[in-house]
Design a protein around this nucleic acid. Structure first.
Length: 893
DNA sequence: CCTCTGCCCAGAGGA
């Protein structure tokens, strides 16, 4: 039994005398049943009274195993010896965060923006952990060490480490583990499981245990510890996993910590029986302690306040982060137990940091809310929301060369739609993502064959029965945002900050060179980029040759001996830019990205991290051009690199921190984009992250910007509405040929064969359908008929694209057209084009979905078409809004 | 009432 719901009132804790002596108690009023039931009073006894001090009205509180008694006709509840009190159980805290918080609340805070740096102890720690996993999966030690060290080649090279020495170092740690595993500890009832993903819906904690043996957590530490007891924070970590294992039906009484360096000392110093393994007993007091620590952390995050360090008992003099801690306190004018050094940054910088910090944390809370839906939603609800694939039939399981598993399954449900795509990380389970046997897995194949069955292949650490896949809502990227803001504000050069905070206009040098002789705006763009002493902004409306201009810019900069970072929001845009460079005869670049993210044609340029350290690092360090998405620019590897100029494409779609991650790596920068197309996508509706740096700077420094005004894509008739509505009529066809292009120019097309309704370059069709939710069946059928009409008139399938605002409608249309027709959402169509574009608006009666509010989305949809555009929708709905009415008048004119 | 893309996930250590 449990009580879960919002807090209505909290009383101050008081001390009362009971039969067993004096005890603290605090009374909390809350509404159980997630707020559906009338308020009840719960007495929080003993140390839970401390948690009451963190409770605020409006928070959700969860009390497990309460006692219940009737008192004067009123039901009263109280905590029992078995109870836990959990604040905001939907806020998912990582086990490592609790470990850090217990060590020092301020260290937890600092690690949000300093955590992901490249250091040898960390790389080595990861290597030893990987080898440990391999050993548990039965892999040979020598092979594992060699392979894992080879995989880390680039990182080791950037750290100037010698391969042989690292192999020796990792091997000696791993041998300690192997000897311990062989020392009779491996009995028949020894059941091992490595790398177990644990998610607790009761405690709001998630994490990954290194290993579980006989139901108890085993944590590996690469350091040494010759004390009798494990370090407290290590015990806290293991206890967290014990708590989570408890929810999965196991009640471990002991935890094990493996300090591998103990055994290394043992061997080299002949100190006798100094075992690497230290066991400790997991008491209920310790279990409750970790929950209280989590509660404190969550209470702090609830109002986005900043920890001072006084929340924990750490001694600052012993802390490795003391200097960083004091600098951050000094620069941001924060109260801190460690004290502060340096002078505070200008108020503008501090306000900016604060604003983006809060925005990033709000985003994290939204992700956590999504996370909680893993268990608050039923399987059917999740499937309906496209977030899960259910009822998969498990097929064969095979162990891969590195000891991990390839799991296969089939799905017969031909109507199943989901957001899950190849290359993504998902929760793979045997039935339920938090209650069943679950593995974090990577989707390597998701293909639907012509008979409608879907083949699913994932890679995971353990051979579970693959019956269900769930979207994994990761908050992984949030700390990346915070790191970028931190690096920019606290570590950025004065000149750069003056620019970002509007205190200094960008300046430009001079050049006599001509770069592009047939397009003045493009030439001006390259000129601005090449002469920029701070930044240049290139505004590229649809079809204006952004990619060509960008490639010319890269080449011009390289010819001047500059080192260039080439970045973009999507992998596709990065690869497009590189293709364009190749077409222009430039091939001296290195592509950074995952095998899955990089297009097939660019795999040969992709930097493999595996190999000889020195050679790998030299390849990266010596490349005149390095290319990768903005997200990778914040990675530890790229943070080791420096550039003269960063060029960022699709900058209008990047949040400000994401853009900062890229430009932090360079002295100067060039942003390329269009703020009249799609903005950054964020979960929180009123987020400060919704405005891109590109948009902010183009408003602030119009003189540093140039707009490419000639478009090479659309017929005059098609581009007119977009040009008038979004570009002040400044967007013009690049040539008469572009302006006057017609569908009949395609060799196979007969204009006469088109129905009269489709003969105009811009057409409107009202199929008179009815929308149910995000689907309009009649309209989907009509769209399929229109596709057929174009096909019958001779338009090749790959010249036709269909766009709909909702994924559900996309699926509805996809089922009705042949598979070689591209059907997609607006967002996924940005950046590409087709001769013929058909847009399905879905809505009938009114336009009440917020998706119609952002006009920029319409701009993207309409400007994908080159020769013919067909709008399909409900005339009444579209006329209900002045913007769409104008669009309709243009289409019908 | 809704769209989307990136990140391998989370954690790897020091005293």
């Amino acid at each position: 039994m449990e009580l879960r719901g919002p807090v209505v009132a909290v009383e101050e804790p008081r001390t009362v005398s009971t039969r067993n002596g004096s005890r603290d108690v605090a009374e909390v009023t809350m509404r159980p049943g997630r707020g559906e039931e009338p308020p009840v009073t719960v007495s929080l006894w003993g140390s839970w009274a401390e948690t009451a001090e963190s409770l605020v009205t409006g928070m959700t509180v969860l009390v497990t195993e309460p006692s219940q008694e009737e008192f004067r006709g009123e039901t009263r509840y109280a905590t029992t010896a078995e109870s836990y009190v959990v604040i905001e159980p939907e806020f998912m805290v990582n086990v490592t965060d609790i470990r850090e918080w217990v060590q020092c609340s301020r260290q937890y805070y600092l690690s949000k923006f300093t955590g992901a740096s490249l250091s040898y102890p960390l790389v080595k720690g990861s290597l030893v952990h990987e080898v440990f996993g391999d050993l548990l999966r039965g892999r040979d030690l020598e092979t594992s060490v060699e392979e894992r060290v080879a995989d880390a080649g680039l990182k080791l090279g950037l750290l100037d480490r010698d391969r042989t020495a690292v192999v020796e170092d990792v091997r000696s740690n791993a041998q300690a583990i192997e000897r311990w595993l062989q020392q009779g500890t491996l009995t028949e009832d020894d059941e091992w499981r490595s790398e177990l993903t644990l998610i607790s819906e009761t405690f709001g904690i998630k994490g990954r245990a290194d290993a579980v043996r006989r139901g108890g957590p085993v944590e590996l530490k690469t350091g040494k510890n010759t004390d009798a007891e494990p370090r407290f924070k290590d015990k806290v970590q293991a206890t967290c996993y014990a708590l989570l294992l408890g929810e999965h039906g196991q009640t471990p009484e002991t935890g094990t910590l493996l300090y591998t360096k103990n055994a290394v000392l043992d061997r080299t110093e002949e100190t006798g029986d100094l075992s690497p393994a230290k066991e400790f007993s997991i008491s209920s007091g310790l279990l409750q302690f970790v929950v209280r620590a989590r509660n404190e952390l969550v209470a702090m995050e609830f109002d986005s306040s900043v920890p001072t360090g006084y929340e924990s008992n750490a001694i600052c003099e012993y802390c490795f982060e003391q200097d960083t801690c004091m600098v951050v306190s000094g620069r941001l004018d924060q109260e801190s137990k460690a004290g502060a050094v340096g002078t505070a940054l200008p108020a503008a910088e501090r306000e900016y940091f604060d604003r983006l910090y809060r925005a990033a944390e709000a985003e994290r809370r939204e992700i956590h809310r999504e996370y909680a839906k893993l268990w608050t939603q039923s399987a059917a609800e999740r499937a309906a929301d496209d977030k899960a694939l259910l009822d998969l039939q498990p097929q064969e399981r095979s162990q891969r060369a590195n000891g991990t598993w390839e799991l296969r399954a089939e799905n017969d449900d031909t109507t199943a739609v989901s957001k899950i795509r190849e290359g993504e990380t998902v929760l793979a389970s045997d039935g339920h993502p938090t209650r069943g046997d679950t593995e974090l897995a990577r989707v390597v194949r998701l293909r639907t064959s012509t008979d409608g069955t879907t083949e699913i292949v994932v890679h995971a650490d353990e051979p579970i029965e693959l019956r269900r896949l769930d979207v994994y809502p990761s908050d992984y990227g949030i700390n990346g945002l915070l790191t970028a803001v931190h690096d920019s504000v606290l570590k950025g050069a004065q000149r750069r900050r003056d620019l970002l905070f509007g205190r200094r206009d960008p300046t430009f040098g001079e050049t006599d060179a001509t770069f592009i002789d047939n397009n003045a705006a493009q030439n001006r763009a390259v000129e601005l980029a090449v002469t920029a002493e701070d930044c240049a902004l290139i505004h590229g409306p649809p079809g204006t040759g952004k990619t060509y201009t960008l490639a010319q810019t890269v080449r011009a900069l390289c010819e001047r001996g500059e080192r260039v970072l080439l970045s973009a929001f999507t992998n596709r845009a990065v690869d497009n830019a590189l293709e364009q460079l190749r077409e222009q005869g430039f091939t001296d670049f290195v592509r950074i990205g995952t095998e899955h993210g990089v297009s097939d044609s660019m795999q040969d340029a992709r930097l493999d991290y595996r190999g000889d350290p020195e050679e790998r690092a030299a390849t990266l360090r010596n490349a005149p051009v390095v290319a990768g998405t903005a997200a990778t620019c914040g990675s530890p590897v790229l943070k080791e690199c420096a550039f003269d100029v960063a060029i960022v494409d699709e900058a209008g779609q990047l949040t400000e921190p994401d853009t900062l991650a890229a430009i932090n790596l360079a002295d100067r920068f060039v942003l390329v984009g269009d703020h009249e197309q799609l903005p950054p996508v964020v979960r929180d509706d009123d987020s400060a992250l919704q405005t891109s740096l590109f948009e902010r700077l183009i408003d602030r420094y119009p003189d540093a910007a140039v707009t490419l005004d000639k478009q090479y894509r659309m017929a005059q008739r098609i581009q007119y509405f977009s040009s008038q509505t979004f570009y002040d009529g400044q967007l013009r066809p690049a040539s008469p040929a572009v302006a006057g292009q017609q569908l009949s120019e395609l060799p196979t097309v007969s204009h006469e064969a088109l129905p009269s309704a489709l003969q105009d370059a811009v057409a409107f069709v009202d199929p008179d359908g009815t929308a149910t939710g995000n689907v309009n069946r009649t309209e989907a059928e009509r769209v399929a008929e229109i596709v057929d009409a174009y096909r019958s008139a001779g338009v090749p399938a790959d010249d036709i694209g269909v766009i709909a605002p909702f994924r559900a409608q996309v699926a509805e249309i996809t089922r009705r057209v042949s598979p070689d027709i591209t059907v997609d959402t607006v967002d996924r169509f940005q950046g590409s084009d087709r001769s013929v574009i058909i847009v399905s608006f879905v809505a009938t009666g009114t336009l009440d979905s917020p998706i119609f509010e952002d006009r920029r989305r319409v701009n993207v949809a309409l400007t994908r078409a080159k020769k013919a555009l067909c709008l399909v929708g409900d005339e009444r709905a579209l006329r209900s809004d002045p913007f769409y009415e104008r669009m309709l008048e243009w289409a019908q004119s």
